[in-house]
């Protein structure tokens, strides 16, 4: 009897070690919820207070677009949302890793970040190119697309659900790129609503 228990424990430990050494599982659900809330507040401020409303101009105008007067405001707002979201993610993940007796900066988190970095940096550089060409309408769908690609890639190295999230973000990005008028709405859904749903799901599935 005692032996049997030992074998079962051996198998359980093998499985746990394989998972722990190949996947980063300290991603926090709450960080997702918070990031979603920041994104929605950000879109609300951009839309209502700064009257930022990207339209169809990217495809229809033959002359280069121009920057609206409020562009610096919107840009600093977007940057603040990004920094807040990343900061919160690091903070919550750090706490979660501590609770799980893991380090935040370990081989699995490194691998996760490296695999996300290539699509993300590409998307970031492209965003600056779009800004320099004043093609502002395309920024929201393109950030969704590259974020989606990064998540899809990252799904192999963390919760499998991240892959699904990535695919939906890609879908939203494509919709936003076709119907440029819906770009901001798609962005609010992709970075706001989806993050909140995903965060709650992760929290109830893995953090209870």
């Amino acid at each position: 009897m005692e032996k049997e228990k030992d074998y079962i424990r051996d198998i359980a430990e093998i499985r746990s070690m394989m998972e722990r050494s190949s996947k980063f599982l300290s991603l926090s659900g709450w960080a997702g919820v918070m990031a979603g809330i920041y994104a929605i507040i950000g879109v609300y401020i951009a839309h209502k207070l700064f009257h930022f409303n990207p339209g169809e101009t990217a495809y229809t105008s033959t002359t280069p677009g121009s920057w609206p007067d409020n562009f610096t405001n919107v840009f600093s707002l977007a940057l603040s949302v990004l920094i807040l979201a990343i900061g919160t993610a690091i903070f919550f993940s750090y706490n979660k890793a501590n609770k799980r007796n893991e380090k935040l900066w370990n081989p699995t988190s490194r691998r996760l970040l490296v695999n996300m970095a290539i699509p993300l940096v590409t998307g970031g550089v492209l965003t600056f190119i779009l800004i320099s060409k004043a093609l502002l309408d395309l920024i929201a769908p393109f950030t969704l697309l590259f974020y989606g690609l990064a998540l899809y890639n990252a799904g192999k190295f963390t919760y499998g659900e991240v892959r699904v999230l990535g695919l939906i973000e890609i879908g939203l990005g494509l919709i936003g790129a076709y119907f440029t008028g819906t770009g901001l709405l798609c962005w609010a859904i992709g970075f706001g609503v989806l993050h909140i749903i995903y965060g709650i799901y992760i929290h109830y599935k893995y953090e209870q």
Partner: peptide, 27 residues
Amino acid sequence: SRIRLGIMSALAVNDTLDFNSLKEFLG
């Protein structure tokens, strides 16, 4: 040995691991 089993499990799913990573995973 549980530690040896742990080393094998970690190496089975990783191409390579350095000493410190193994140390961290196994404690």
